[in-house]
């Protein structure tokens, strides 16, 4: 199948095909991001994509932009350095659930707290796919993985709630089933000035699905469809077991963005220095 021109434009075709398994949702997630970048006419020369380690983080190599594939969990502090050194760059951070909620969990809450204008796409497949399906902090309680063959005793994070309490100013969740919604939310996240966090559930039939009786992509996408509940702040409802909200969950435009505050601080500091002379 021919790749559409707008998708082509954002891909480094010389490094394709991707390493992702058949049925993996990361191709869909990447197309969502490309569609959002193209709709917003984001200049690739001015775009920096920073990622950590894992299946999803390989996306940085495929996207034709300034890209930095860092160490496991450390995408956010690297992105922080990039954004504060050059606030005019558009910085997108791509992490998996292991990256963002386990090894890099501390960086995630602190980046949320600072409200730097970074766009985080946390691509969540509920397990460590790259290393063949170990339990992650996002594997649901009592579900299975290669390192919890008798069921997961731990409980998954509510990542969106966590980054909200940490201070993120745009928060949304979607899935690879909800393509149109995902594009809309990705665009909102990119346009939001401040720390934005979009969690994207994507299917990993090869490992997560296999261990949990969902051996192919359609079955997993049906699972997303069945359990996703559109969030309406006017009408909050009690979620049944296994259900999760999708949609924009939170936006706060009252908090100043960090780089703006820093610019003001520099001006103040210079004036104070001159006054002291």
């Amino acid at each position: 199948m021919a790749i559409e021109p707008f998708v082509k434009k954002y891909l480094r075709q010389r490094v394709l095909p991707t390493i992702w398994c058949g049925g993996c949702g990361l191709g869909t997630a990447m197309r969502v991001i490309i569609q959002a970048l193209d709709d917003l006419k984001i200049d690739q020369d001015n775009l920096v994509v920073v990622s950590g380690i894992g299946c999803s983080s390989r996306m940085a190599g495929y996207l034709d932009a300034n890209t930095v594939h860092t160490t496991h969990g450390r995408a956010l502090p690297v992105a922080t350095g990039i954004k504060l050194a050059h606030p005019e760059l558009e910085v997108v951070v791509i992490m998996g659930d292991g990256d963002g909620s386990a090894i890099g969990g501390n960086h995630l809450i602190h980046a949320s707290r600072r409200n730097i204008n970074l766009n985080v796409f946390l691509l969540n497949n509920g397990n460590y796919g790259m290393t063949s399906g170990q339990v992650s902090p996002m594997t649901p309680h009592a579900w299975y993985a290669s390192t919890c063959p008798f069921g997961n005793l731990e409980h998954a994070f509510h990542l969106c709630d966590m980054v909200k309490s940490a201070g993120a100013t745009y928060i949304a969740r979607t899935t690879t089933f909800h393509y149109m919604q995902a594009v809309r939310l990705a665009k909102e996240a990119l346009e939001h000035k401040g720390f934005s966090f979009l969690e994207v559930y994507f299917q990993c039939p090869t490992y997560f699905g296999r261990f949990n009786d969902m051996k192919d992509a359609p079955t997993m996408l049906q699972w997303f469809k069945k359990n996703a509940v559109r969030y309406n702040p006017e009408k909050p409802r009690e979620l049944e077991k296994g259900q999760f909200y999708v949609g924009k969950l939170w936006e706060d435009n009252t908090k100043d963005e960090y780089a703006d505050l820093y610019r003001k601080l520099c001006k103040r500091a210079k004036e104070m220095m001159q006054a002291a002379k």
Partner: peptide, 22 residues
């Protein structure tokens, strides 16, 4: 830019990011 980061892992990560921008 001066940044106090959340730990030393983040500290060196941030300076690598800044350095890559020149």
């Amino acid at each position: 830019v001066f940044m106090q980061m959340e730990d030393e892992i983040a500290s060196i990560a941030s300076i690598i990011g800044a350095s890559l921008t020149g």
